[in-house]
């Protein structure tokens, strides 16, 4: 069984989501699916008149994702959750808990990643050595 999705990219996500908002869709939630060591799938779920509409976006784990919390404020919670669980970075998060929404500061692992463990500060460390 396949899910009906519109595929979007990092460049278009904010525009697409803004379009959804202008069309009167209600933001339901976002799901992060661990695909492999490098990539995750982000699914945005919207609702209008009891119908769900999904947007799908595949992104590499290491690169920051544009935040949609500027469009739908409600998205700040789930984006913070994804940050905790998958170590994703969101650009322009309106209310940033800095990866401590659920987890403590000393937790360095990203518990929901099946494939390998990436450190939240791995990127910073890599940049430092480069």
């Amino acid at each position: 069984m396949e899910l009906e999705c519109t595929t979007i990219t990092r460049e278009t996500v904010v525009d697409e989501v803004t379009k959804m908002k202008n069309d009167g869709y209600r933001f339901v939630t976002m799901s992060v699916v661990d695909l492999d060591e490098e990539n995750v799938d982000l699914l945005y779920h919207f609702d209008k008149d009891l119908e769900v509409v999904n947007l799908r976006m595949a992104v590499p784990k290491k690169e920051p994702v544009p935040s949609i919390s500027g469009v739908y404020f409600a998205a700040f919670l789930i984006e913070n959750e994804s940050k905790d669980h998958f170590g994703l970075e969101f650009d322009g998060l309106v209310l940033d808990f800095g990866g401590t929404l659920y987890l403590e500061e000393e937790v360095q692992r990203t518990p929901f990643c099946k494939y390998g463990v990436i450190r939240k500060d791995a990127e910073a460390a890599a940049e430092g050595t480069a």
Partner: peptide
């Protein structure tokens, strides 16, 4: 299962 994601209603009601 590959992924199980649960979106509970209170999660949606915190921004309001």
């Amino acid at each position: 299962l590959d992924r199980l994601r649960i979106r509970t209603p209170t999660f949606a009601n915190i921004p309001p």
